[in-house]
Design a protein around this nucleic acid. Structure first.
Lengths: 346, 346
DNA sequence: CTGAAAGCGCTTACAG
DNA sequence: CTGAAAGCGCTTACAG
């Protein structure tokens, strides 16, 4: 069922039928009536593909997230979707699995389907060619949760450095000096932070830098040795935590880089028979659901993720609508929600 | 940059350029070479919209879920996506928020964008017009997690009735007779199950029926009075749980209809100072992450959600590829994972 | 207010 | 193996 079919059935020209079906131009009430009844009788559904092709707009924005199963990203997607729907845009979601190749092909796919704009959480902040390609083609782009220094482009992130500083200070205030920072970035068991090239996501790097600066200010100069990689899944996290706890200077507190890591670390500690916060303290990034139902509940860095999503979508839509000006980096403040998982060191 | 641009730059006809760019037909190696170099020099990107329009296929399947923030659905989406990607399909996700209107417009949107097929978790199993419209238009459709009796269409669901029977028996085996079943379906505080029209999703209805049959077989004839609606969010769940526990015959065990309800119920119980399983036992549907880190961990009905997603996508793709035969309803068995949240009634 | 023609960027027969 | 033409279903000027 096409415009032509409806036109024929309503005894008008294709152009006229298209005007009422597409809701543009002016048509007399009588003819409008004829066309709409014909359309519903025939069960006409507009072909949005054809529409996009002639108008050059699809009314759709593409979102590429690292892992849709991570509650952080699903919450962000809700923020983005709510905002987008409000402005009359639809959202297409793609998953990169934090892999650069998948991210690249998702971008190709979405640009191929002519999205009006793109929100991306770049899986590797040192790779920008595929993103600058997108910009060159003229697709507005917003970076989400992470920035790419080499790229002059809008970004919406959390204030990661400050968040880590606040969390680290909180632990220091309880008397902790031996604090471990654990992230999911792939790495061998026992591998610790020595240089920034190990951490491809700017948000994690920012947190680690905030953590190290705060430890250093407290006189802990070898803090980087307790910044550990490799908490990619439960098995690896178990190994990382065991290695840490069996080391020469075991940590009295752990900072988990995201809520997946936090959950895994907690499971590892349970498996080792350690009590929180009696044996060890823990703070996790992201105020995930589960952090409130553990015993004790977990102290978290609360990131305004929904709001970040909303802002990213608003910014993108402004760009789509032609808003000019230089690239902006919006950094949203976080807050620490103190619950029961932090105590004095043993 | 279009096929025409590349053709001009490579000194060949549009048709020839299109052949190498589109990867169809036969072209000599020499010309292929010319065209590909011209294409990459110009930064050509195929317009998938135009491609879909002429071929009539978009290589995309649409998925409409009730709530992407619910881990049940994100896991299903991963199963669907993995399966789809394997078969060369892309996935567009839309969220209905369990609202029929949103579901309808999502279907319109996706059909408008000419997806090759649709996987839908119908928010109301008594409404089928919008879905039979889709079928009439010729879009293959798979129902996910829920069926619509009025519709002859493929469906992939869990074995909900049997799952509820197993969970209820498990509680009965511990000596429980006063068992409450709590669902998120909107309802007044204290509202209990009297007829099937209260429950628009077939999966929940199936569970409730299994629960009631099992209770009845155990001589509990008024079990329906403890089937409670209204656990839509934390506040309402608190009210539902309080009302239940302050009633004349308070339950000694609770069956939570999904993991969101389970989490909320657990919070309500914590807030009331009740201990699990000493004061009350609990079983939740869906083996969510958080159920393993509570104290005690929660006994759950483990639904093979990833597998359900995979199967739904496979079935859909088979239909898209023209596989015939009558509609099939695939019901996947669940298993009970016994952890520490069930004990003897107080 | 209505209509005829051209065009969006591809693919699909049909010739050669 | 290569090319010219038509067509997918719309919208966009341009006439009348």
């Amino acid at each position: 069922m096409t415009v032509a079919d409806v036109a024929r059935s309503a005894n008008v020209s294709k152009a006229t039928a298209a005007r009422v079906l597409g809701g543009y131009g002016t048509v007399s009430d009588k003819i409008r009536e004829q066309v709409t009844t014909a359309a519903s009788a025939l069960g006409y559904r507009p072909n949005e593909l054809a529409r996009s092709m002639t108008t050059g707009r699809s009314g759709t924005i593409g979102v590429i997230v690292g892992d849709i199963e991570n509650a952080f990203f699903s919450l962000a997607v809700r923020g983005i979707s709510d905002s987008a729907r409000n402005a009359g845009f639809n959202v297409i979601i793609a998953n990169s699995g934090e892999e650069l190749q998948a991210e690249k092909s998702a971008i190709d796919l979405l640009i191929g389907r002519r999205v009006d704009g793109l929100i991306v959480t770049p899986s590797d902040c040192r790779e920008s060619d595929h993103l600058s390609d997108a910009i060159r083609v003229g697709v507005p782009l917003i970076l989400f949760d992470r920035t790419i220094p080499a790229l002059q482009v809008d970004a919406v992130t959390g204030a990661d450095r400050e968040a880590a500083i606040a969390a680290t200070r909180h632990l220091q205030d309880f008397g902790h000096r031996q604090i471990a920072y654990i992230t999911a970035k792939e790495g061998a068991v026992g591998e610790f932070f020595t240089n920034e090239y190990q951490l491809p996501t700017s948000s994690v790097l920012g947190r680690v830098e905030g953590f190290l600066a705060t430890q250093s200010a407290n006189g802990v100069l070898d803090a980087h040795q307790l910044v550990r990689l490799g908490a990619t899944d439960q098995k690896h996290t178990d190994a990382v935590v065991s290695h840490l706890l069996n080391g020469s200077a075991p940590p009295t507190a752990i900072l988990a880089s995201d809520s997946l890591v936090g959950l895994q670390v907690l499971r590892s500690l349970h498996a080792l028979g350690m009590s929180v916060p009696e044996d060890i303290s823990i703070i996790s990034f992201f105020n995930a659901d589960w952090t409130t139902v553990t015993t004790p509940p977990i102290t978290v860095v609360d990131q305004p993720v929904y709001e970040m999503g909303r802002l990213a979508a608003e910014r993108l839509i402004a760009r789509i609508d032609g808003s000019g000006g230089p690239a902006e980096h919006t950094r949203l403040q976080t807050s620490l929600i103190s619950r029961g998982s932090v105590g004095r060191p043993k």
